[in-house]
Structure formats: C-alpha cells, structure tokens
Simulated assay, not measured.
Amino acid sequence: MSYKEDEYLMLSGIQHYYFCKRQWGLIHIDQQWAENSYTVEGQQLHAKADNPAIKEKRKDMFISRAIHVSSSSLGLSGVLDVVEFYKKMNGISFAGKKGTWQPYIVEYKRGKPKKDERDIVQLAAEVMCLEETLNCQIPSSYLFYHSVNKKIKVDITKDLRDLVSDFSAKMHFYYQNKKVPGAEYFKNCRSCSLYDICMPRMNKKPKSIDNYIEKAIYSEADLCGNY
C-alpha cells in the first residue's frame, strides 16, 4: 500500500493512538484539543529541541534539528526533534560534507521512561519515516527523558516495525471512515487534557459491544478491501 501526500497522517499521532485510541480520534478526526500542565511543558521542551538555529558539530558528528520526514508506505509525516549523524563507512553522503554518515534519531520527552511502549513505538515510526526519506537503514535510535536527564538506546526490531505498520493501517481506517474509537476508562484518564471532552465513564461501551465492533472493523475482509 502506498499513500498519497494528501492522505498522510501526523507522525506524532501514533503515540496518541498507542496510549488511547479515543484520544487519538478526538484529536486527529474530531479536531478536539485542550491544554494542561503536561501538554504545555511538552511543547516548551520540543520548541527548544526543534529549533533549527541551534547547531552542533564535532569532528566525527553533527546534529540536525527539525527535519521534515514522511513515509508513503505508512502514510505518515512529521518533524523530528534531533537527528545525530556520525561518520561511518557505508553511511549516506551529504553535499558539503566529506565521508559518509549514519543517522540516529533522538526523540525528546518531558517526563520519565514509561511502563508501556508508546514512546518506543513513536520512535520506531520516526525511524521508518527517516529511512524512507534518506533511503538508508537505521538499526537503533534514542529516547531522551528530560525529567531524569536520561538517554535510552532503542533497537528498532522487526516486531516494532510490524507494530508500527499495523497501527498506521488502523489509524488510516478510522480516519478514512471518520470514526472516533469508543471510550475506555483507565486510572490515568483524569490526567488526560481531553478528559472533560471524552467523558470516558459516560461514553464507555460494554466490553461485549467493543469486542463486536473491533471484530467488525478489523475483519480480514475489511482490511484487505481498504489496504
């Protein structure tokens, strides 16, 4: 499957989708948004990391910021925080720079490492988009957590790549059908900036109905017909 540029979804949305499908749908389909302290702090951190005027280079390394990337196979596009390029044989060439270079993404996060893989899945999606943009292979990249000042290496495995491909296909299915996923209620729902818009306790459907809808939406026939 190859998507056209006007069909691309926001790359950063895959983290929302992993965390809460309904949150993603409210933001990216219904265009709903609300701020809280977490979203404001995150925006301030990304504004600094994304500033293309901040440059850094050493003998065997240089940094690029705010790089626009996209993937026609995933139908995603976005802007990367930071990409570090290290001089390496069999890397990629750049005009005005001697030798070849291996890129590694550094994705900045406001808080600390999560118990789930939402940040890891976002990073894997970014890697896949950068690989397609630069026509290269990137075996690993990094998450930097601001509150604990910690940089974590993440191997971009086949399982992660498959998960990204699966999520992006389902995101496109929802988006094309203008269907916002049903509500679920979790203990961290109240920390979501969209809690009052989502009203998860009121909109949550019985599990049996959710299961039926999931099966109907993601039947093999439907997915084959749309992708």
Rank of each mutant, 00 (worst) to 15 (best):
P139T: 14
V164K: 13
N149T: 00
Y175G: 11
I156A: 10
Y145W: 04
A169P: 00
S140C: 15
S165H: 10
D155G: 04
D159M: 09
V154L: 08
T157N: 05
F167Q: 07
K153S: 13
Q176V: 10
N177A: 13
D155S: 08
K150F: 03
K153A: 13
Y142I: 07
S141E: 14
S165V: 06
T157V: 05
K151F: 05
I156W: 11
I152D: 06
S168K: 10
F167I: 07
H146M: 06
N177M: 14
D162S: 03
P139Q: 14
I152N: 08
Q176I: 06
N177K: 15
D159N: 10
H146I: 01
N149S: 01
R161G: 01
V164M: 14
T157Y: 00
S165G: 05
D155L: 07
S147V: 00
L163Y: 07
H146D: 03
D162C: 03
V154W: 06
Q176W: 14
T157P: 03
H172S: 08
K150I: 01
D155V: 05
K150W: 01
L143P: 06
K158D: 01
S168A: 12
Y175A: 15
Y145G: 00
R161T: 01
N149D: 00
V164L: 11
S165C: 09
I156G: 10
K158R: 04
S147W: 00
D162W: 02
D166Q: 11
D162G: 03
H146A: 07
V148W: 01
L143V: 02
K158N: 04
L160A: 08
N177V: 08
Y145M: 03
N177T: 15
I152T: 09
Q176A: 13
T157I: 04
Q176G: 15
S147D: 08
Y142W: 14
V154C: 10
S141K: 14
L163E: 15
S168Q: 08
V164R: 12
L160V: 03
V154N: 07
T157G: 02
I152L: 09
K153T: 11
L163H: 09
L163P: 09
F167M: 13
K153D: 11
D159L: 12
D166K: 09
K153G: 09
V148S: 04
K150Y: 02
V164E: 12
H146P: 00
Y174N: 13
K170G: 10
Y145N: 02
N177W: 13
S141Y: 13
K153Q: 12
S168R: 05
Y175I: 12
M171F: 02
D166L: 12
D162Y: 03
R161Y: 06
D166C: 06
V164S: 11
N149G: 01
S141Q: 13
K150E: 04
Y142D: 13
H146T: 00
Y142Q: 12
P139L: 14
I156D: 14
P139N: 15
F173K: 10
L163A: 10
K170R: 15
Q176C: 12
K150C: 02
V148Q: 01
Y174S: 14
F144E: 07
Y142H: 13
L143I: 02
S147K: 03
S141V: 12
Y145S: 04
I156Y: 13
S147F: 00
L160D: 10
